[in-house]
Each structure stands twice: as structure tokens, then as C-alpha cells.
Computed example of a mutant assay.
Amino acid sequence: MRLLLVRHGQTPTNVDYLLDTAVPGPGLTELGLAQAAALPEALADEDIEALYVSTLLRTQLTAAPLAAARGLEPLVRDGIREITAGDLEMLPGDSAQGELYMRTAFSWASGDTALRMPGGENGEEVLGRFDGVVAEAAASGARTVVMVSHGAIIRTWTAARADNVDIQYAATHRLANTGVVVLEGSLSDGFKALSWAGASVAPAGGAGPAGEPLDDAG
């Protein structure tokens, strides 16, 4: 299966750099709406057969132009919503609390899935719910699937499931609004990331493109 993980368009809390993960969450800014409107052209070469969105409003608004252009009905799934911030909700992402949020998430990708976000989920729960939606998409027979999701969970899940993306890569490659990670593979055989925000990803053991050491969530 070819899997395209798309971060939603810009929100007001992205602008303020806050850990905003609660459902339903805010809508999109004017820039976010423009980013969403550009998605159909950006993905014009992809033969998309299924489109999934999370339970947060911003993913549904981001997917709407693509759904209209392709005649697809977005499938709303809680499993691909953002990692719940718990006690860190609405705190600044560029603070010590924001660092704790991302450090906890990336610990799950390294295998410490029992670790729990303060007041929130543990890694087994987060990776398991995302896996469940990926498994559903694979079982549908769709060959190319788009999932409009969120920055932190896309980076964490990809680091945990893609053979050629490690924690260092995911931690130092910020995914901008409507940035896309393209993967191929399966949960049983493993995934390989083909591109990250338009840049090719090296095979396992290779050197990937350089990135900025920035973290984001939401």
C-alpha cells in the first residue's frame, strides 16, 4: 500500500505555537484554507483511492478540497487524531513542557511504549490506534491512501514503523502544515518512507537530507 500522511493546514493555535490536541479543536486560518485549497494540485499525480481524516475539525477542513476534486467521501477515524497532550494541553510548544511532549512521543518510537504522556495516553495506545486505521485501509484493498492527520503523531508513527526513518531524523525534520510523508509497505512487512515534505528519504542506513531541529504538534 502507498500511504500519504498529510499534516493539516495552519490553525490559530499553530500560529501561537500551543499544544492544542483536544477534539474538536479550532478551524483553519486564511493561510490554512489556502494550503488546503492547494492540496488537489499538489497530489495531482497520485491515484488516490481512499481518504481518511481525524476527529479534529482542522483535518476535515484540510481534506475537503481534495475530497471534492476526487469525488471521495472522507472517512473520519479517531485513531489518527493528534497525540493527546493531557496535562500539557494548551501550553507553549517551545517551552520545557513542549520538549517533554515531543521527548515522550519519540520515546515510544524507540520502544518505550509503556511511557505515558502526563495526564494522557501511553505509546501502546497511540501507536495501536494509528495502526488500526492503517490496517483498516489496507484491508479495504485501496492501493493509494491519504490520511490527513497531525504533526506529532505523523512523525512519531513514521519513526516507529518506517525502516529508514529513525528518531533523530523525525526529531530534526519538522513537518510544515500540509507537508506530506509518503510511505510504501505494510504493517506486517514494514514500511519504507519514500519522501518527507518533498525530499527523498535515503534507504535504511543511508544519510537523509538535512533539516531544522524544530518540533511541532497539533
Rank of each mutant, 00 (worst) to 15 (best):
R2G: 09
R2M: 15
L3Y: 02
L5G: 02
V6M: 02
V6T: 06
H8R: 07
T11N: 09
T13S: 15
N14G: 10
N14S: 08
V15T: 03
D16V: 14
D20V: 07
V23P: 03
V23F: 02
P26F: 06
P26E: 14
P26M: 08
G27T: 10
L28P: 08
T29A: 09
L31G: 13
G32H: 01
G32Y: 04
L33W: 01
A37H: 05
A38S: 10
L39K: 04
P40E: 11
A42P: 08
L43H: 02
A44Q: 06
D45K: 12
E46K: 14
D47F: 11
I48L: 07
E49I: 05
A50I: 13
A50N: 11
L51Q: 00
Y52A: 05
V53H: 03
V53Q: 07
T55R: 12
L57I: 15
R58F: 06
L61P: 05
A64S: 13
A64E: 14
P65E: 11
L66W: 07
L66I: 12
R70N: 05
R70G: 00
G71P: 14
L72C: 11
P74C: 00
R77T: 07
D78E: 15
I80G: 10
R81N: 15
L88D: 06
Q97F: 10
E99D: 15
L100A: 09
L100S: 07
M102G: 13
T104M: 04
S107E: 12
S110E: 12
G111E: 00
T113R: 14
A114T: 04
A114G: 04
V126H: 03
L127A: 13
G128Y: 06
G128F: 13
D131C: 06
V134M: 04
V134I: 05
V134L: 06
V134F: 03
E136Y: 08
A137D: 06
A137S: 04
A138W: 11
A138G: 13
A138K: 13
A139P: 00
S140D: 07
A142F: 01
R143Y: 03
V145A: 14
M147Q: 08
S149D: 00
H150C: 11
H150S: 08
G151I: 01
I153K: 06
I154H: 12
I154E: 08
T156Y: 12
W157N: 12
A159D: 06
A160S: 05
A160D: 02
A171R: 14
T172G: 14
H173S: 14
L175Y: 15
G179R: 12
G179V: 10
G179S: 09
V180I: 12
V180R: 07
S186D: 09
L187M: 13
D189N: 12
K192Y: 01
W196H: 05
A197Y: 05
A197G: 12
S200A: 14
S200Y: 11
G206S: 08
G206I: 05
A207Q: 14
G208C: 05
G208Y: 09
P209R: 11
A210Y: 09
G211R: 01
E212D: 10
E212A: 08
P213A: 02
D216Y: 10
D216T: 10
A217I: 00
G218R: 06
